[in-house]
Design a protein around this nucleic acid. Sequence first.
DNA 1: CAATTAATGGCAATCGGTTGCCACCCGGTT
DNA 2: AACCGGGTGGCAACCGATTGCCATTAATTG
Lengths: 328, 328
Amino acid sequence: MTINDIAALTGVAASTVSRALSRPDRVNRITRERIQAAARELNYVPNTQARALSSGRTETVALLVSDATNPFYFGLIRGAQQQLRAAGHALLLIDTEDSAELENHLLHKVRRSVDGVILAASRLPEQTLSVIAAELPVVTVNRNVPRVRSVVIDSPDGVMQAVEHLVSLGHRSIAYVAGPPSSWANEARWRAMRTAMARHGLTAARVGPFGVSRSSGSVAADALLNTGATAGVTFNDLLAIGILRRLAERGVDVPGEISVVGCDDIFGADFCSPPLTTLTAPIEQAGRVAVSMLLDHLEHLGETASRQTVLLPTHLTIRQSSGPAPRR
Amino acid sequence: MTINDIAALTGVAASTVSRALSRPDRVNRITRERIQAAARELNYVPNTQARALSSGRTETVALLVSDATNPFYFGLIRGAQQQLRAAGHALLLIDTEDSAELENHLLHKVRRSVDGVILAASRLPEQTLSVIAAELPVVTVNRNVPRVRSVVIDSPDGVMQAVEHLVSLGHRSIAYVAGPPSSWANEARWRAMRTAMARHGLTAARVGPFGVSRSSGSVAADALLNTGATAGVTFNDLLAIGILRRLAERGVDVPGEISVVGCDDIFGADFCSPPLTTLTAPIEQAGRVAVSMLLDHLEHLGETASRQTVLLPTHLTIRQSSGPAPRR
DNA sequence: CAATTAATGGCAATCGGTTGCCACCCGGTT
DNA sequence: AACCGGGTGGCAACCGATTGCCATTAATTG
């Protein structure tokens, strides 16, 4: 089942077999068909490592996520997976456990075993990313770095929609519940929030940072209540769902006493209680686009990219966790 | 940054460098330390493909799931990932899209690029699995095949607990809401259900099969109501959550009019509405154990396994979707 | 009909490690 | 002094493809 077996069987040299399979126009039709038939019959599958060793192409892409159990990534993983399979590539999944150090280490380790990497929510400093991008094709997700192509979900725009929504419901005091400080998206959302509030002559409060897990939601909920705000916009849905649970525990009515708006519209946002008003992000699409950009980049290496960054729109999905501001 | 660079730098042969790094006791301490120091300094990372080509070991394990967006797999992926990283191995994630044919094809394709595979919820017939297991180290999850090591979550036992729970609440008419017929676990749960019911002189109804998605939940809910059962045990939580939504839509009170028990305790089961009574499965642990078994198997290839299959216990977690049977 | 060119296929080097085998050195035995 | 054996390290083959270069042959053209 190696290229040599096929060569022996068809009476040609191994190099000819290789060409017949990977550069068909380089060999005579008759020969080619004979070889291809033999390959099919023997159920030949080229050895990936051998191919990688000589050609440098591994047909594998690494996807780095900060936490494989975060539902946000499910969609991303799936989208990436789909697009990769379509191109015949494999997906190496790497969980960086939210550690910049580990991320850097693992990146360094797989550097030679993949054709490129997709960094979802990288915790690495900008400079490090630039260095890495210089020696390895990189596409980031939700992270903007000069000279590194990226797909970013336009949640800042969504945050503005959320603010409009809340303000129109009479809310005047709205707080931002922040996520990890090392998250680029976190800062982007906070900036958008301040801008949107300022447009109405309002000032946003900010609490956090909090970890992105449901348990962090409890402490976030308490902090949110302390601000006296009548509404909170959270860094992501995981946090929002945690907050909803804690508020229910404390007997605080949502949205009667306080409104909560999440971000991403992950699995669960539609069936938690109350169903979460949130920014719906095209996560799966983001995964597909990231892969497309990467593969495209691989095909035209030396060239400068036409579009360095793709912005994906979000929209506000109104459910039951947001409502009119309480009368005071 | 290849082995040769280090060899040149330290003035030894490449083979010595190789040994110094992978079989340290085979080379003199002085030499070894000099080489290791140089390797560290140059930030040397061995080329995976080259190593794999000559040694046959790729230090990569493939995890096949039937649908990467199914929350059940999140925990599995994470557990596997953790254990693999600890061993310095990489994780190749493969989504078989619930197709036996695709599963077989992809398995065949990666065969040579991985040291072993973990098949989570394989859709392949037993015979095919045996063939594959003979030519490639395999560990299955929730699937029992002779001579193939496996980790199975003891949900049949859990199903019995669920039946006891429901019967003690006065339910006499309980239906099983079935998942995909190709799922081994599905049949195992159904058998357990019938056995448990029979113990009380009762007969279980069965509806389905249904796909495992929340949208399938709608049709499942209607079918469940048609049976006239006062309680339903579902193949998995995804289906259960879908059912809860549909019942809410139709104005059916849960658990007032009908009780619903899920299976797996996935993300979301605790905060859906009402929170789902379900069989809590040690999913992450299953992932870890599967990897351990596989790596263990790899280390002692020729030998016969001590334990071919590991059974992981489940327990019933009672929340608010189950309650006393309605009085008629 | 000679000459130029295009199409085709083989040779052999190469990618970067791994590993069996052998040679050498050195201290310890008899 | 001859011998033995363990500890070290080098040589070279090998894993399975890819690819640059060249030789052969066939086709085209003036």
